[in-house]
Design a protein around this nucleic acid. Sequence first.
DNA 1: TTGTATGCGTTATCAG
DNA 2: CTGATAACGCATACAA
Lengths: 352, 352
Amino acid sequence: MKAADSNGASGAGPQRRVTINEVARCAGVSKTSVSRYLGGELSALSEDMRRQIERAIAELDYRPNQMARGLKRGRSRLVGMVVADILNPYSVAVMHGVEVACRQRGYALMLCNTAGDDELERRHLAALASYSVEGLIVHTTSQHTRDLLDAAAHGLPVVAVDREISGLAADMVGIDNRQAASVATEHLIAQGYRDLLYLSEPLDHVNPRIERLAAFEAVLAQHPACRGRALALDVHASARLDQALGDFLAATGPGPRAVFAANGVVTLETTRALRRLGCRLFEDTGLIGFDELEWCALVGSGITTVAQPTYDIGVTAAQCLMRRIEGDRSAPRQTLYRGELIVRGSTQPVAR
Amino acid sequence: MKAADSNGASGAGPQRRVTINEVARCAGVSKTSVSRYLGGELSALSEDMRRQIERAIAELDYRPNQMARGLKRGRSRLVGMVVADILNPYSVAVMHGVEVACRQRGYALMLCNTAGDDELERRHLAALASYSVEGLIVHTTSQHTRDLLDAAAHGLPVVAVDREISGLAADMVGIDNRQAASVATEHLIAQGYRDLLYLSEPLDHVNPRIERLAAFEAVLAQHPACRGRALALDVHASARLDQALGDFLAATGPGPRAVFAANGVVTLETTRALRRLGCRLFEDTGLIGFDELEWCALVGSGITTVAQPTYDIGVTAAQCLMRRIEGDRSAPRQTLYRGELIVRGSTQPVAR
DNA sequence: TTGTATGCGTTATCAG
DNA sequence: CTGATAACGCATACAA
């Protein structure tokens, strides 16, 4: 005789939930006492009263209403995550870490996808605010972050993932782009590649993109024997990408040549383009990619990558945020992980 | 003179938000009128009053507090999505559709990952309930769905993605597994494969897994010239998978042979295993996979897949849910999409 | 140690 | 058309 209720078919009743009042009545105490019990003020309750409350709660299967709780205390125990592209494996992996860390500390997660649209981001931030989220984890590319800045200025804790937000002195957690990009570039050179193409999405003032490129160029400057060029373009424009890649392949000398893909999306699109251009993966042309993706080991002789600890980044971001929420007012912190080189066949040059 | 506030550094103020009272005062009307305005009762307001309210709202940048709103009206405009594996590309793609559809109708999305853990699922459902979510979109594998059933019995609308939930007459949206699996199997046979291995994750009473297998066997029964076997195992146990795959390869006749991977995870692990076993992809052994993944075209000669319209599935699931939330009491509906065969090199047999 | 009264920001029910 | 006033479910200052 449970879960049977009065409603015959599925989804009928307006689901009246048990309130603290009913628990109080059932336990024969005042709702204040129940509230105290819930608030963990165990020291201020007599033994049998506590037992009664416990019984009543179990019997009625009472769950406190977070809406009411949040309204009263001003704490919603809600965290918002704003992501530019929910389909990006990097974002998803970070999200995974965020979700775990939030749940462990009793926060729930509201997810928003801006699809790279600034107006949408505005609306999402407004929506999140309307739910009184206590903090924000942000991984977007947008430039018009007025609303984000406003939110932060109004005292809402914000943690940026993978990039700094210009004008916002917020916590940030990501990767050491200079280290990671240097390691990758040096690896290519050590493997004997002499013509290098750095391929990135449009820089758009996105911090890590700029830093990675800078590191690439810095390393290259130390190796005069190497020729390098860098291109930032919309890699989803296949024709343009093919053109750019083709130009590079045509212009290189007889020695080994390789492409450095600046992130996971670029790795994917570059691999596709190389195939379209009829390259044998990866004999014609070497390839190294930022971001370890589940399929990198599977294509051709395997794609060498610089892996990021995405899960840890997510966990750290969330922990960082929750510390802020719980009152930490110290200076903004940056947590940078190191990129880890995973060597595969795509960076073993083969004589052409 | 905006966003400057009193706080010097970041994250100081307890972010007092503008309330309906202040809007009312600023507009020189009662808060009831403001509430009416917000509720869209435009017909019941004089022109200038309406203008005043509009001005005040804009001037103060007022945003209604969803917490309070939800508390009063009992409608939180919140939808919960419970997923077994947030890292599964299928789940993510569906989530994408869900997010878009929810936003369009003004619902926000709370995301939960159960990581296949029943206890975690319990807790997540409890948490979602505590936030008064108005509906649930569920994509899990769990068997102990007591809490889910309870929730539904209490009148909470639930939409299942990709599978039916036993004991729950809820809406469902997914793919026509019999059609899709049949198409795939018939394709293999038409291509000349004579030894077929169907590889699945443990059936565990998960509906689509059972249906796909059944379709495979049904088609096979019509082709006596074909030998088929089916295996359901934890594909993450590499050693066991290698063993199983090795056994199959050893036992087959001289004719073409192929593996049917029952979902995206199996496709990934099978491809890894084939590589470990030293197979040339896909000359030794053909492969067809359920779920189109972004990398399928890239490995070897390309992996033939049966694609699902994941985005549409997500959109439909969300729309379906919101219809229920808004009062639709009609009989539970099933929406089944068709799988689309995408032929690539992995199903072009090559003489061994 | 326990209970009463008040208010969080909204909407809904009434009177005017 | 408009505005007091009472809930919504909970937490908390205050009183007992």
